[in-house]
């Protein structure tokens, strides 16, 4: 199942920031992590991942560095303090949304707990 574009537009950056919260990652690694950690639900098109990373970098929510020490040079992305702050805000908002959705009966509390 794929998420609607509009919904993904809001969830994508938060998901990327969340994944990068643990450690810095390069592009393909990020794709894989998003796919694995969301059961493929947030496996966004790779063509949109890189523009999303560039935009987050333009907003100083993430930063990047080139590592050319290995055989294959890679660009690593890492969350910034501003990115962490943004992630915290977005997380709270998502929780509020989830709570509201639960109250409306769109989400099931037990299912959420189980999930």
């Amino acid at each position: 199942m794929r998420i609607e574009t509009e919904l993904m537009r809001g969830a994508g950056p938060v998901a990327v920031l969340k994944v990068l919260e643990r450690k810095e990652m390069y592009g393909y690694e990020l794709v894989e992590a998003l796919s694995a950690r969301s059961d493929g639900l947030l496996a966004m098109g790779q063509s949109t991942l890189y523009p999303l990373l560039y935009n987050l970098e333009a907003k100083s929510l993430i930063t990047s560095r080139w590592d050319e020490t290995e055989a294959r040079p890679r660009k690593y992305y890492r969350i910034t303090d501003a990115g962490k702050k943004k992630l915290a805000e977005a997380t709270k908002q998502w929780r509020d949304v989830t709570k509201a959705m639960t109250s409306l009966g769109i989400l099931n509390a037990s299912a959420l707990a189980g999930g």
């Binding site: 098109g45 790779q46 063509s47 949109t48 890189y50 523009p51 999303l52 560039y54 935009n55 333009a58």
Partner: peptide, 18 residues
């Protein structure tokens, strides 16, 4: 990877923002 055109258009805007 997906659509080349979509990627190029989004990247063009993202590069400018940076």
């Amino acid at each position: 990877f997906g659509s080349e055109r979509t990627a190029a258009a989004l990247l063009r805007r993202a590069i400018r923002r940076k």
